[in-house]
Design a protein around this nucleic acid. Sequence first.
DNA 1: ATGGTAGACCTTCTA
Length: 259
Amino acid sequence: MQIATWNVNSLSVRLPQVLDWLAANPVDALGLQELKLVEDKFPFMALQAAGYHAVAHGQKTYNGVAWLTRQPVRDVVRNIPGFADEQARTIAATLDTPQGPLRLINGYFVNGQAPGSDKFAYKLRWLDALRAWVKAELVSHPRLVVLGDFNIAPEDRDSYDPEGLRGSIHHTEEERAQFQALLGLGLHDAFRLFEQPDKCFSWWDYRMLGFQKNRGLRIDHILVSDALRPAATACTIDRAPRKNPQPSDHAPVVVTLAD
DNA sequence: ATGGTAGACCTTCTA
């Protein structure tokens, strides 16, 4: 089976591209981020016609996350339990598979703007809350996937300019320590379980010909739990949609799990 | 030098 993540930067604008991508890549589950729409405006019908069930946690203008799945999910949880958050950033759901239940957590992690800012402090508090939640979820759901737009480049090789951007947003020691702490719970960066080419990124700035120059960051991730690690057989970034007219600034990331 | 682009929206915020 295949599970994917994609920050679409407005689902209203990107819906045709999402439908095209799903037609070519009929994954079992796709976590979307930055819907930028409320649930009342979520395109349930168009996705249903394409063969996908959907559960969404929407918000006007900003944020918003959703799961699109071939089979219906259960036990949907919106936001991080116990963490008061006005921003719609996570949605969790359980997918029943022949191998057992699979818990899926989809997050649009806080951007954080700049180290030292209020938004950066919010990012670190949010990451603390997320990690406590994931730790608890792992107890009841050993088969766990945490994916989304993490807004963290975990290592120097995940940035087009690790020296020039050292200490700047997405690159700080605090953010990288948070990423490692998540892995420390018993999770694995699926992309790094496999041999990959150099300079693989999942996001490129719209400005300054970022994509054409491959000036990007790898900030979209799929983490799989210890129990799932043996099943993972591939993880790839699909750059193709970034070449579309009116693209999202992020590319989809896909993990393949053996049956 | 602090640029530039995209999306949603009320003229600026977020990324």
